[in-house]
Nucleic acid binder design. Structure first.
Lengths: 250, 250
DNA sequence: CATGCTGTTTGATCTACATCAAGGAGTTTG
DNA sequence: CAAACTCCTTGATGTAGATCAAACAGCATG
């Protein structure tokens, strides 16, 4: 009973050609739509730390992450920051119509995005119901993730927050590499301590202390600053405070 | 320059007949769709405190709030609770397909919901693109609200949290009653101190203390336990920590 | 090879909020 | 109209995590 994989959809089952959402199974792509998408799409690369869009920008494109990681953040006037979303490969950003809120979109690692110019994309959406359907599914998943995160932010301890984040990243990472040894997971942390703290509603010092504490207790192993190995995933999962079968998904 | 109203869509502009979303302007209702919706809809009433659906239930309906207020909560194994959504009249609950997460849905006040049986609703959605469109818009708004709330949960002080909540409820309430004296808002708090604490990630004692503190400073006036009057909305808004023009929407 | 520079760790101290505890105000109930 | 209930307030005390501060590790730079 391996609890790591079940909830994970791997790229293996994906529709490679659907640029909207590689992650999910897509059996509805039709040639002419894809052709239109082909015409309005273009790629953009960003270096780690570069800003994709500032809060308040009128983004003239919508995009999906091809490789790398981007973060979605809000900032208060006095500089307090809260990350509100983590964009991993196949995740989508941008919305039809106006958003009331404004987020910074920042590359956490080197990043490649597949962009679609907004206007033609919106037109395509109107004429192609299933693209709207797809976006609805994705948005509902994001909403679920945001609400899980609200529980984390509002009620979890620092230790539980860290454990939760590590489990989520490990899960997502494992879903990309089909090879994984039983129970043991190893991955490169894509976030600095500061970015983690912004995500978890903590300070970077607290993040560092909790990481050290997990390390001392043998729940995680580290090589250098970024390489993390989880010798026993289930054991770390117990530290998250989640129901044992709660399937987090970011 | 009245900052209270601008972001609020009033019922005045609403399409009364569209059961999906009264709040937004709907110019796309077509007779035959409405007829189908008519056939599959039914009303349910709940008393304050009653549970509409438990976490883990397979809800066999989707629904929109007609009158009253419902809350969406998650609970951890050890009983820690976090409210993740507040459903006000015209808000929608339920989703096509399965949700990974499970929420309790509870009536905070007496509640009337307009329900649609799930199966036929989903079928209607497939055959009627604009209903999906509408749901996408609503879901994106909810996602924005959830993300605003993440900022609140992760980074705001207790005082800022209370001020934010009061401003949000006052705004929503004002949008329902067209009559409002300049700057002064008065409303009935639909939540107990405990419910507020669950929403804000605080304890009920802290909520009570902060309310008292705001009262002592004259930022709010109270009659009994529930009636709140905000003599100067802008002043209270300054306590929220938000950008002055940040338009919260729940 | 010193000189930064960026990201991290660890320690000492402080504080906002939680926790524990008691009592009050407004109801419903017998 | 007492008893019991629910919801709220206020006080005393405890603590998780913030803040302040110093130093270190890995890298790039001149």
């Amino acid at each position: 009973m391996n609890r790591v994989t079940p909830k994970i959809q791997t790229f293996a089952q994906d529709c490679e050609s659907c640029p909207i959402r590689h992650r999910a199974v897509c059996a509805r792509c039709e040639a002419d739509e894809l052709q239109v998408l082909e015409q309005i799409k273009y790629y953009r690369s960003f270096e780690a730390g570069q800003t994709v869009a500032w809060a308040g920008d009128n983004m003239d494109f919508v995009a999906s992450v091809v490789t790398g990681i981007a973060t979605l953040s809000q900032t208060m006037e006095d500089g307090r920051r809260q990350m509100v979303g983590l964009l991993l490969p196949s995740d989508f950003v941008g919305r039809p119509g106006r958003s009331r809120s404004a987020y910074d979109v920042t590359a956490a690692t080197n990043l490649v995005m597949c962009c679609f110019r907004r206007k033609p994309f919106e037109e395509l959406m109107l004429s192609t119901p299933h693209i709207g359907q797809r976006l609805l599914e994705m948005t509902l998943d994001e909403l679920d993730a945001a609400r899980e995160w609200m529980l984390l932010l509002g009620r979890k301890t620092a230790r539980e927050k860290i454990a939760s984040l590590l489990c989520i990243i490990a899960r997502r990472d494992a879903s990309l590499q089909l090879s994984q040894s039983q129970g043991e997971l190893s991955f490169e942390l894509p976030l600095t301590r500061e970015a983690m703290s912004e995500y978890l509603g903590l300070t970077l010092e607290t993040v560092s202390r909790q990481m050290s504490s997990l390390r001392k207790e043998g729940l995680i192993l580290t090589e250098g600053k970024r390489r993390i190995t989880i010798p026993d995933f289930d054991k770390l999962l117990e530290e998250t405070g989640d129901d044992s079968d709660g399937g987090f998904l970011v």
